[in-house]
Deep mutational scan, measured.
Amino acid sequence: TYTWNTKEEAKQAFKELLKEKRVPSNASWEQAMKMIINDPRYSALAKLSEKKQAFNAYKVQTE
C-alpha cells in the first residue's frame, strides 16, 4: 500500500507512474488511463481533475 503525506508527493507518485508505464506524451487521457488504472498509484490523486492536471503537466514535461 502506498501513502502520501502531501498533495505534492501524491502528484509526484502519479507522474512517476506515467513515466514508468511509458505513457507517450501524445497519448489521450483515455489511452493513458487504460495503461495506468490497475496500479495502486492511480489513486494517489483522489479527484479526476487532479489526475488530468498532473497528466497534462507530465505531457508538457516529456514533449
Score class of each variant (00 low, 15 high):
T1V: 12
T1Q: 15
T1F: 11
Y2T: 12
T3P: 15
W4I: 04
W4Q: 07
W4T: 06
N5T: 12
K7D: 10
K7C: 09
E8Q: 08
E8V: 06
E9S: 05
A10T: 03
K11W: 15
K11A: 15
K11E: 15
K11F: 15
Q12M: 09
A13G: 04
A13E: 04
A13F: 04
A13P: 01
F14W: 03
K15M: 15
E16T: 10
E16W: 05
E16P: 00
L17V: 05
L17I: 03
L18E: 00
L18N: 00
K19W: 15
K19T: 14
K19F: 15
K19S: 13
E20R: 03
E20C: 06
E20K: 02
E20P: 00
K21G: 03
K21N: 07
K21H: 07
K21I: 04
K21R: 11
V23F: 03
V23M: 02
V23D: 01
P24V: 02
P24T: 04
P24K: 04
P24Q: 05
P24W: 03
P24C: 06
P24M: 04
N26E: 09
N26P: 02
N26D: 15
N26Q: 09
A27Q: 04
A27I: 09
A27M: 09
A27C: 11
S28L: 06
S28N: 10
S28T: 13
W29N: 00
E30P: 12
E30D: 10
Q31S: 09
Q31I: 11
Q31P: 01
Q31E: 10
A32W: 02
M33C: 12
K34D: 08
M35G: 03
M35H: 05
M35N: 04
I36F: 02
I36H: 00
I36T: 05
I36C: 06
I36K: 00
I36Q: 00
I37P: 01
D39K: 00
D39G: 00
P40D: 07
P40F: 13
P40W: 10
R41V: 03
Y42M: 03
Y42H: 02
S43E: 13
A44C: 06
L45T: 01
L45M: 05
L45D: 01
A46P: 15
K47N: 10
K47D: 13
L48S: 06
S49W: 11
E50L: 04
E50F: 03
E50W: 07
K51P: 02
K51N: 02
K51W: 05
K51S: 03
K52C: 08
A54M: 08
A54K: 01
A54R: 02
A54P: 01
F55C: 04
N56K: 13
N56D: 12
A57W: 11
A57Y: 09
A57S: 10
A57F: 08
Y58H: 05
K59V: 09
K59F: 04
V60T: 13
V60L: 13
Q61R: 07
T62W: 11
T62Q: 13
T62D: 08
